Simulated assay, not measured.
Amino acid sequence: MRPGFFAEGRLARLSREFGLLGPLGDAMEPWMTAELDQHTAAVRDSIATDGGRLTRVSLSRYLDGFMDGCRERGWYSSCDGYDWETLRLLAVCRLAKEQGFVR
């Protein structure tokens, strides 16, 4: 097992749940690829701006803060499309998978 992998962590649960809502594989439409690329870059930049490296812990902390903000605004995923928050969460899932933090 890869060091840092935690099968029951927040990133794993999110990836399982949101993996059902959106494509994270190779068969994405071009607009989705572009949107996820931008969101992924924004997440990386946010973590780096805080002086951190992209690790399972830093991505989990980013996720916690992002979800706290979503809850404060009363956001919930309606599954009726890809709003900004859903795209950002899919980008977090994508990063977690690319980095080997989840399977």
Rank of each mutant, 00 (worst) to 15 (best):
A34Y: 12
W31P: 03
I47L: 05
E29C: 07
A12K: 02
G69C: 02
W84V: 15
R56M: 13
D68Q: 03
E85S: 15
L59Y: 00
A48D: 09
M28I: 08
M1D: 11
D64A: 07
T33S: 03
G4R: 12
S78N: 09
S46V: 03
F6W: 08
Q99N: 06
D68H: 07
G9F: 02
C70N: 05
L87K: 05
E8V: 12
S58K: 10
S58E: 15
E98Q: 11
V43P: 00
M67W: 04
G52I: 03
L20V: 13
L20F: 10
V43R: 00
V43F: 00
F18G: 11
S77T: 14
C93L: 08
L90H: 01
L59I: 02
E35A: 15
G81S: 10
A91L: 04
A42N: 00
A96P: 01
A91N: 06
R94H: 07
D64G: 04
A12P: 04
M67Q: 15
E29A: 10
L14P: 04
T40N: 00
L21C: 14
F18Q: 09
G51C: 09
K97N: 05
V57W: 08
D80T: 06
A34T: 14
M67P: 02
G69P: 08
T40K: 01
A34D: 12
P3K: 10
W75A: 02
T86D: 02
G25C: 05
L20K: 13
E17L: 12
E98S: 14
E98V: 12
R73Q: 09
L63Y: 11
L54A: 06
S78C: 12
R103Y: 13
E72K: 05
A7F: 11
S60H: 10
D64L: 14
R88Q: 11
L63M: 10
E72I: 03
L95I: 15
E85N: 09
M67A: 08
P30L: 04
Y82G: 03
I47R: 07
R94P: 03
A12T: 05
L21P: 07
R16Q: 09
L36G: 05
L90A: 06
D26Y: 09
A41Q: 15
S15P: 04
T49P: 04
L59D: 00
A34I: 07
G69L: 09
A96M: 02
P23H: 04
Q38M: 14
R44F: 01
M1W: 07
L89A: 07
D64K: 09
R71F: 12
L21M: 10
L87F: 05
M67T: 15
T40G: 00
I47Y: 06
R103A: 09
S60P: 12
P23G: 10
E35Q: 12
Q99R: 05
L87H: 10
S46A: 14
F18T: 08
V92H: 07
T49A: 13
E35R: 15
D68C: 13
G19F: 01
L95H: 01
S15K: 06
R61C: 07
L36I: 10
L59V: 07
G100H: 02
W75M: 08
A41E: 14
E72L: 12
R53Q: 12
A48I: 06
A7L: 04
Y62T: 03
L89Y: 01
P23K: 13
R13L: 06
A42M: 00
L24T: 00
R2G: 11
P3Y: 13
D68L: 09
A42Y: 00
A42T: 03
A27D: 15
K97T: 05
M67I: 05
